[in-house]
Design a protein around this nucleic acid. Sequence first.
DNA 1: GTCTATAGAAGGATAGAC
DNA 2: GTCTATCCTTCTATAGAC
Lengths: 184, 184
Amino acid sequence: MARTPVPGTRDTVLTAAAGLFYRYGVRAVGMAQVVEAAACGKNLLYRHFPSKASLAAAYLRLYRTERERSVAEALRWADGPGPKLVTLVGEIAEMVRRPGYRGCAFRNYLTEFPGENDEPARVAKQYLADSRTQVAALVSELGGDDLMADRVWLVVDGLHAGPPDQARVAVDWVTEIVQRRSIA
Amino acid sequence: MARTPVPGTRDTVLTAAAGLFYRYGVRAVGMAQVVEAAACGKNLLYRHFPSKASLAAAYLRLYRTERERSVAEALRWADGPGPKLVTLVGEIAEMVRRPGYRGCAFRNYLTEFPGENDEPARVAKQYLADSRTQVAALVSELGGDDLMADRVWLVVDGLHAGPPDQARVAVDWVTEIVQRRSIA
DNA sequence: GTCTATAGAAGGATAGAC
DNA sequence: GTCTATCCTTCTATAGAC
């Protein structure tokens, strides 16, 4: 019989690639580096990911899955649109403050490949659009208008880009906005 | 006799490089592309800019000079810290709405070269620090506290990152913040 | 023998630097 | 123009598990 394929190889490669891509940027990391970090042969890498773009897309999809899991878990403790909104922003702030944070993976990719519309670019755009929709939905549930949704999203954008010392400022501000809305 | 060096060559090369760097990203643009766009010889390029990093640094410095000129000209029409702050944010919003806007050149470079501390990275960090200081100074003149300065900077960060449709939202918000501060 | 794995060379393009 | 180095990708060669 033939040799049994090692299970979990795809995850090993993807995890190694994700760490490198996020830390150093997709453009700066070569496929050889990924192979070395994953401790596998080039053949295996290209069998699971036919191109670097597909590997980058998988990296962003993995990132999205992890973030959605973190957000969902945080939101389980929140009751109602107001607390949910604050919790959501608080979860982002926690990520920003985490050591090794190097910016939003999706925004970073779109910056590294401006004007691109390949698979990873579409994954990134889709995530950002869905994320904004999620914020807008919570604001709408809370009874806020489009202006409030736009302002919260502006804070969220600034939170992603800005330095970690701005994390608390963003959370407090959104908290204030939500409370004012809840009282009025 | 030796041939007289063509005056303005450095500017020609730099302008061509700046356009390409901003549009496609520093990493994506090769020196050959710059040479082709500038319609000059490779030796001439390396005579004025000994490395790609120095060319990128000059590109960011040029960008800074242009922005400071635009901001200074806009601020000449504003009287007092409040109107100045609104004008400053409005000028950024105008830039964001301009066709061909691909994000903040300084933030983009730092994203393309994460963790780097070479010459262009230092230029970028310096500009962002000075820009934040400028905002904080205007807020201070207006009688605002550190929290207000942080919040305005958060909006400015979001304004740079976000889509053009957020430009007006940011300007209106800052206007509102300034007016509330002026009345109270 | 058959299949999967790694290691490495090679192709072809392009990078920065001289 | 040329040099060297590296890029992504493909292919070959070889070792190991069934």
